[in-house]
């Protein structure tokens, strides 16, 4: 895997946090990607209006494309098979709706305001993800 400097990781994190901060202060809403996706596709409805949620989701690849043009081109290294990709996608879609959020809504926004629900959710998905990778790499793959 290519190397990435701590400066890049921290700067990238600051950009993500700044985006969440701006959305809160400008519009009063939570920068939660799974919720915005549900609103955009009309699978669910939340506090964010459809146009804003859709613009936010469309902005994600635009931002990545801009960063690719200006600073660095990230690799996308996926080792998973097609069935695994599909199972993982289904679990992420179902789980984020059932648990009301993902890494952004619970991890970045909820943790920042010390919401007990978000702290519990973040600890839970971090733990289950780490256990999954452990089984995948060191039990099955080992």
């Amino acid at each position: 895997m290519e190397t990435i400097t701590s400066l890049m990781a921290i700067s990238g994190g600051l950009l993500i946090g700044t985006a969440a901060a701006l959305l809160l202060l400008l519009t009063g809403r939570i920068a939660g990607v799974s919720g915005m996706v549900a609103t955009m596709t009309r699978i669910g409805a939340g506090a964010t209006p459809w146009s804003q949620a859709t613009a936010f989701i469309v902005g994600l690849p635009i931002g990545t494309a801009l960063m690719t043009l200006l600073v660095r081109t990230p690799e996308v290294v996926v080792t998973s098979s097609v069935p695994l990709l599909i199972v993982a996608g289904l679990l992420v879609g179902f789980g984020t709706r059932l648990g009301n959020g993902c890494t952004s809504g619970h991890g970045v926004c909820g943790m920042a305001r010390l919401s007990p629900r978000s702290v519990a959710a973040t600890a839970t998905f971090m733990a289950s993800a780490a256990v999954t990778v452990f089984i995948l790499r060191h039990v099955i793959g080992g």
Binding site: L15, G17, T54, I62, L66, M67
Partner: peptide
């Protein structure tokens, strides 16, 4: 605001 914020968010994900 949605577009600007999403773009900054996406740029951060790519940079990091």
């Amino acid at each position: 605001p949605g577009l600007i914020v999403g773009t900054i968010f996406g740029a951060g994900l790519a940079l990091s």
